[in-house]
């Protein structure tokens, strides 16, 4: 076992344990922070595999943007905390399916790749990746930029308060004034968790 393998085992163990904690943790915030640790660990795996650029992109995009986005998502949807509220009834089914899938994949992978072993890890340089992006992969790259633009516009459109209203300024200032709450109580309380079931349909069908 070389030093390379040793580092991989350590990083892989950290990644696997924190990934298990992501799906079993009882606290939402802990799950999100374990997810950040898992994504960092996967970046470390990329480093061990000799893909420095992918590791960098992983840390910047996933740990820097996606994990923070998840933290905001959890904070903005005030969900109840606790195992009963977080896990559904079919935990046994999930365990069975996931276990069977892992056993199947391992039974396929171990005979197929058990014997092979390359002497050293050699990855392409960042220069080669840059040339490949803008020579061989330039069309998919542009399509990806269009996809990101479409996702940006779609996310803004979906998460906006009211379709047809220009902004949220009026509502926010009225909430801060306080006495304006009496005018339209149901609209403001629909944001909270205590909205009655009867008004939800009216709020949803715009």
């Amino acid at each position: 076992m070389t030093a390379h393998d040793l580092v991989f085992v350590i990083v892989g163990l950290v990644t696997a344990v924190s990934a298990i904690l992501v799906v079993t943790s009882r606290h939402l915030m802990h799950a999100a922070l374990y997810l950040a640790l898992t994504l960092t660990g996967i970046g470390g795996v990329f480093l061990v595999l000799g893909a420095g650029f992918i590791a960098l992109v992983q840390v910047v995009v996933y740990v820097g943007a996606v994990a923070v986005l998840f933290l905001f998502g959890l904070m903005l949807t005030r969900a109840p905390i606790g195992r009963e509220a977080l896990d559904s009834q079919n935990r046994g089914l999930g365990l069975a399916v996931a276990g069977a899938l892992f056993v199947l994949l391992a039974a396929l992978i171990i005979p197929a790749f058990g014997g092979e072993s390359t002497a050293e890890v050699t990855g392409p340089t960042i220069e080669a990746i840059g040339i490949a992006i803008f020579a061989d992969w330039v069309l998919p790259f542009e399509v990806l930029s269009m996809l990101l633009l479409a996702a940006l516009i779609g996310a803004i459109l979906l998460a906006r308060r009211e379709a047809g209203e220009s902004g949220t300024e009026a509502e926010v200032t009225r909430i801060e004034m306080g006495e304006a709450l009496a005018d339209e109580p149901d609209r403001h309380e629909a944001v909270g968790t205590s909205a009655p079931a009867g008004e939800l349909g009216a709020g949803g069908g715009r």
Binding site: T15, A16, A19, I20, V22, V23, T38, I42, D87, S88, N90, R91, L93, G94, L95, V97, A98, G99, L101, F102, L105
Partner: peptide, 11 residues
């Protein structure tokens, strides 16, 4: 990791 993700989606 893939199996853990499948378990998380189901459970």
């Amino acid at each position: 990791l893939f199996s853990i993700g499948v378990y998380g989606v189901i459970a």
